[in-house]
């Protein structure tokens, strides 16, 4: 459902150019749990933004559910994010003036869902993350773990195809981090595609497939299904069990 083909993302900085992504080719299929790992500046966040339709490739093709995202209008990409993609951020990004329930209602507010239905679905989503009794609390009355669970409820309330989590445990203690990951994984087991960006190996290991990035390139795959073959001409997709790529050592740190 997610397919990147020879994707470059280049930023202009002063007179020079910075390549945040260099010729990335990747496919993520429905229901996968993928971890993107790499040091800061390795391009994993840029990748997540492109996958999340917040950003567009400078070069190359990105297909989301077989639609070429680069060719979509601003509005069509917004609608794609609204209905098909859920985001979870390191800093939660909850609106401090709204209650937990109000924050979960937010995506439906802009989708024009009627108030009654909104409240019902938000309450249901909060119940699913175990926070039904905290619905009226504002973010500053919640712990970090609870905040992130509210954010997860918000991410899934529109029933998206994929949840993109950018360092979801980066601001949490060990215990809360575990809770949050278990929650995301439980949703993944019920069919939700999950992409987690992290630099924490312990979090990455939980994924069935780990993609290692460094300097804007994919430098390694663990346990996944698809990797990039750089040997033969143009980009091609090959299975990860190919002996040429197993045990590939990452260039960046873990």
């Amino acid at each position: 459902m997610i397919r990147l083909e020879g994707v470059w993302r280049t930023y202009r900085v002063g007179d020079g150019e910075v390549h945040a992504l260099r010729d990335v080719t990747l496919e993520i299929t429905h229901g996968e749990h993928v971890a993107l790992i790499g040091p800061s500046g390795s391009g994993k966040s840029t990748m997540l933004h492109i996958v999340g339709c917040l950003d567009r490739p400078t070069l190359g093709r990105y297909l989301f559910e077989k639609r070429e995202v680069g060719a979509l209008s601003e509005e069509e990409r917004s609608l794609l994010r609204r209905h098909r993609i859920g985001f979870v951020f390191q800093f939660f990004h909850l609106l401090p003036r709204l209650s937990a329930l109000g924050n979960v209602e937010l995506p439906m507010l802009f989708a024009g869902t009627p108030a009654d239905e909104r409240r019902q679905r938000a309450a249901h989503a909060l119940e699913a993350v175990g926070l039904a009794q905290r619905a009226t609390h504002r973010p500053d009355q919640l712990s970090g773990g609870e905040r992130q669970r509210v954010a997860i409820a918000r991410a899934v309330v529109m029933d998206p195809a994929v949840v993109l989590a950018d360092e979801p445990t980066g601001n949490l203690d060990r215990h809360s981090a575990l809770e949050v990951m278990e929650l995301l994984e439980a949703m993944n087991r019920r069919g939700l595609t999950l992409v987690v960006v992290t630099h924490d190996p312990a979090i990455a290991e939980r994924a069935r497939r780990v993609i290692r990035m460094a300097d804007g390139e994919i430098v390694g795959h663990d346990g996944g299904s698809w990797v990039v073959d750089r040997g033969s001409g143009g980009p091609a997709l090959q299975h990860a069990s190919d002996p040429r790529t197993t045990n590939h050592e990452p260039r960046g740190g873990g």
Binding site: L54, S78, L79, L80, R82, H83, H93, L95, F110, M158
Partner: peptide, 16 residues
Amino acid sequence: RAEIGLLKALGALDRQ
């Protein structure tokens, strides 16, 4: 800024 970014990530249209 963060709120605006969030609203956009959640699928709020520019005109919204």
